[in-house]
């Protein structure tokens, strides 16, 4: 659906995008994560046809976004991180105005607007003035506006920022509905817990280029495999420790009562072999699992600054 290749964008002396590559297959919900100033909004704006890159290519559903700007706009819906509203304009008029911007007029436009207002649960606010709506309602209205022409790709820039938890959950449920309808979603957000529940794949951008990209399962597995093994031993602790000390994949061992925390550099097969070895040595194991990792911890690891990374490397090398 979306294919970005070697995207470059510079603002004066600041390199916002430095050879960004990104692919989102059709029907995916892609979470776009990165620290402030990493180039998320620039990427979204270029994809939405609002900004011209210095070089690179953007293909959306087979359309070259930089060559056919009008063709691109028929395929995308854009929800920015702000609410563009007019004074003295009612919700229904706001929707009908944008419907006419997409070429829908009269009865067709009204039907479409009403259906979308119903979808975002704003049908009872149709005669309210837009500037009188709450923040959550405005964001839902923005979503309805972006869906007016039934786009294949929906671009959302920090859609849940500034919302209270309930509104955020409701908004997230609406996005899940859209995902289930087969829409491709390209979502940038700082709220990683929200992304992990919504997205099917994720990409982390740092200083203008992708540092990590993959499906949610792959990423979570990657997060988990870098976490320590937690082994709960019911009896024969000495034997268990002896086996662990002699195992080549074991890096560190920490014992806390009947629980052993093991820094383990191995895949799932190595884990299974270790468990088998412990059981064969008459060690009674009551628990054996990887410590659960979170997207937040991965984000912190990946986007850690160079000096922080150097400290982490030094700690690892010196066995601290």
């Amino acid at each position: 659906m979306l294919e970005i290749r070697n995207l470059q964008k510079r603002y004066g002396n600041f390199q916002a995008l430095d050879g960004l590559d990104l692919t989102i297959p059709e029907g995916e919900t892609f979470g776009f994560v990165g620290p402030n100033g990493a180039g998320k909004t620039t990427t979204l704006k270029i994809t939405a046809g609002l900004l011209s890159p210095d070089s690179g290519s953007v293909m959306i559903d087979g359309v070259d976004a930089l060559q056919d700007n009008r063709g691109l706009k028929g395929k995308i819906g854009y929800v920015p991180d702000f609410f563009g509203v007019y004074d003295n304009l009612k919700v229904s008029e706001y929707m009908e105005f944008f419907a006419s911007c997409y070429g829908f007029e009269g009865r067709e436009a009204r039907m479409r607007c009403y259906a979308l207002l119903e979808q975002v649960k704003l049908e009872d606010r149709a005669d309210f003035f837009v500037d009188g709506l709450s923040r959550g309602m405005k964001q839902r209205l923005c979503l309805a506006r972006a869906l007016l022409h039934d786009p294949k790709l929906l671009i959302l820039d920090e859609p849940a920022s500034g919302m209270d938890p309930r509104t955020r959950m409701e908004f997230s449920a609406m996005l899940k509905d859209l995902r289930d309808q087969g829409k491709t979603l390209f979502v940038s957000s700082h709220i990683l817990s929200e992304l992990s529940g919504l997205c099917t794949s994720i990409g982390i951008i740092e200083q203008g280029h992708m540092v990590l990209e993959g499906s949610m399962e792959q990423i979570i597995e990657q997060v988990n495999s870098s976490n320590p093994l937690l082994i709960q031993v019911f009896s024969n602790m000495e034997k268990a420790l002896a086996i662990l000390k002699s195992h080549p994949c074991v890096q560190t061992i920490t014992v806390k009562r009947d629980e052993i925390k093991v820094g383990f550099l191995g895949d799932r097969q190595d884990e299974a072999a270790l468990l088998q070895q412990l059981v064969d040595a008459d060690v009674m194991v009551s628990g054996f699992m990887r410590e659960k990792g979170s997207l937040e911890s991965l984000f912190m690891q990946v986007t850690a600054r160079e000096d922080e990374k150097a400290v982490i490397r030094h700690e690892m090398e010196s066995g601290l």
Partner: peptide, 10 residues
């Protein structure tokens, strides 16, 4: 902030 919204339409 409504210009960008109009510019993303057809």
């Amino acid at each position: 902030q409504t210009l960008e919204l109009m510019l993303t339409t057809t």
